[in-house]
Design a protein around this nucleic acid. Structure first.
Lengths: 208, 208
DNA sequence: GACACACGTTAACGCTCACTAACAGTGGGA
DNA sequence: TCCCACTGTTAGTGAGCGTTAACGTGTGTC
């Protein structure tokens, strides 16, 4: 995928600021005037770009879910049949997402029920497919882990990785690289413990 | 502590239903009429029991934080200086809380910023003390783990344990006992991996 | 019986806020 | 030059909703 170098369009600016504001104060806690002000126009001007406030939220949530799923599918495919490599890569990708797109993570599991039925179903379906991607990788590495437990473990690991939003004041926690490293260890450790601990299939753990 | 057998007071009914509704649809997503209806009275009738909608939320959040902290302090004290026993007990307590008081967990990290400044500061302070309780226990068991990493790991484990709210449809996940067991393994596994993995102090892991 | 008090009710007020109406500047293409 | 699509503005509207007012009713107490 080519990295973008051109300037963001107004729509993109709006989405970005809206995501930040929604994450900070919740969907209902942010007014359209405020979103407009964040991109230098005034409230009603937004309606030249979006049908309404709901439409912004919908586009954000669908976009996140699609991005997560596409990224996951790509990583799983690139692992070329090695469950260990797939799981490593999924964890890596999710960590990047959690650390770099914190506001979106927050939105993702906080405002889902504000969506129209059809949009909510779409997001749920994308989420489910992403989870199943993980479940497949986890069960590839830990074949003795029952499917239900694997699914629950995956949810739990998402909670673990997504914990970055609830942080304390800066300075009391490691920087980005340190956090990425730590989260990686935590996630692998949790899954290994769930999977029986003693016998992961080859390829899952980095060489000592 | 004696278990209550007497009927819940109206205030308690209201708090319980409000917690459920707030967790389901968010603070702003629930009207006072709806809360009233949930306990069989009509909207404004609530004002005989609470100063306002905000007051309900404040009482809920402060109550949760206090309950968590008190429980944690009690467990840490009962461990009698053994960091391993303390950590085990803290994990156990938090799992019980996450499984039994799901709506409160959701509220706890979703609606904190809706509080008045003084209440928010109080809740934050209680939370911080609870975290530090954990950090102490974790560093007792894994003395080589730097404080910052221990704190981040604790936040992450909270995210892991609190993941029960984001579950799929029933039937796709283990029951209560299975979940408790799984969460226990996940949490211990994560912390062990963060703490260096190979050398926890004695008393932290159950005998094989 | 009368008074007080706890606990509800319905009606109405007032504020916030998403959204619409009406209007205006800017710039590229015929 | 004229036109028109695009993008923005300010003023206003209407709905939702938290809150208050005013009023009723049962229950225990002197």
């Amino acid at each position: 995928m080519a990295t973008r170098t051109d300037a963001p369009t107004r729509r993109e600016q709006i989405l970005k600021e809206a995501a930040r504001l929604f994450a900070e104060r919740g969907f209902h806690g942010v007014g359209v005037d405020e979103i407009g002000a964040a991109v230098g126009i005034s409230g009603p001007g937004l309606y030249r770009h979006f049908a309404g406030k709901d439409a912004m939220l919908a586009e954000l949530l669908v976009g996140i879910s699609e991005q997560l799923l596409r990224g996951g599918e790509r990583r799983a495919a690139e692992a070329g049949g090695s469950p260990g490599a797939a799981l490593d890569s999924l964890i890596e990708g999710h960590i990047d997402f959690a650390l770099d797109d914190r506001p979106l993570i927050t939105l993702h599991d906080r405002e889902l029920d504000r969506l129209r039925d059809s949009d909510r179903k779409l997001v749920r379906s994308l989420q489910r497919r992403y989870v199943e991607l993980w479940v497949t990788a986890v069960r590839g590495v830990y074949p003795t882990l029952p499917e239900m437990e694997a699914r629950a473990s995956v949810h739990a690991v998402f909670g673990l990785l997504n914990s970055t939003p609830h942080l304390g004041r800066p300075g009391t926690l490691p920087g980005r690289e340190g956090m990425a490293d730590l989260l990686r260890r935590l996630a692998h450790g949790a899954l290994a413990a769930a999977g029986g601990g003693s016998s992961p299939s080859r390829g899952s753990l980095p060489a000592p």
